[in-house]
């Protein structure tokens, strides 16, 4: 009575998946850049800058991404800035990503022994040189597994872009379900697509973690 699930629907969902991946990549790229600065601010020598970064993180991590999306979506609207859905969703995801990545990376930098900083200082390296040549290369190794793990969260959370009308995988599934009303099938296929993207990332993150912990056993 509602029509059957056809190849066209599958192609529509695959198209949605493509946009999910694009949005995730965009969010990771922009959020990564912003997150790097959040991390720098968190380890800054200036107390006010550390405070500002901390407040930023507390606000972003203390509110649901859904609310952040709504604020951005309506906020840009009332100020008369009309943005395409991709930009609104990308901006929302960027803010969200930057706070989490900033905190993950700060943790990685913080886990490097303080003596490394002191040794670099003794060698006459500037603070920036110490960070760039001594601390970051070591922190990068520690930060990789949790960063990949966060990617899974990121991909999953792009599904919330559907509420501001961005046509990604979840939105596509909703649209199809509205016409077919076969929720188990349609959302099952959508969930399967998400799984296909997320599971390899989860597994990768786990194996990276195992490799990192080899020395500590």
């Amino acid at each position: 009575m509602f029509g059957a699930f056809s190849t066209n629907h599958l192609i529509y969902l695959l198209d949605g998946l493509l946009w999910t991946v694009i949005l995730s990549a965009l969010a990771f790229l922009l959020g990564g850049i912003a997150g790097f600065f959040v991390m720098l601010a968190r380890i800054s020598r200036f107390r006010w800058l550390r405070r500002v970064a901390l407040v930023y993180i507390q606000i972003v991590q203390g509110t649901p991404l859904l609310i952040q999306m709504f604020i951005l979506y309506f906020g840009l609207g009332v100020f008369g800035i009309s943005v395409p859905p991709l930009a609104a969703a990308g901006l929302g995801m960027m803010v969200y990503t930057s706070s989490y990545l900033g905190e993950i990376w700060r943790g990685a930098v913080g886990s490097i022994a303080k003596t490394q900083f002191e040794a670099a200082e003794c060698l006459g390296l500037t603070r920036w040189q110490a960070l760039q040549d001594v601390i970051l290369p070591q922190a990068l190794k520690i930060a990789t597994p949790p960063t990949v793990g966060f990617l899974v969260q990121l991909v999953k959370n792009t599904s919330l872009a559907s509420v501001v009308g961005f046509l990604e995988l979840t939105r596509a599934a909703q649209v199809i379900n509205n016409s077919l009303f076969q929720p188990f099938l349609v959302f099952g296929v959508a969930a399967f697509f998400y799984f296909c993207v997320c599971y390899p990332l989860s597994a990768w993150s786990r194996s990276l973690e195992r490799k990192l912990n080899v020395g500590r056993r």
Binding site: N157, T170, Q174, F184, F187, G188, A191, F195, Y199, S202
Partner: peptide, 10 residues
Amino acid sequence: NTPFIVQIFF
């Protein structure tokens, strides 16, 4: 490995 919103719709 799947989003909560898809789970709740499902």
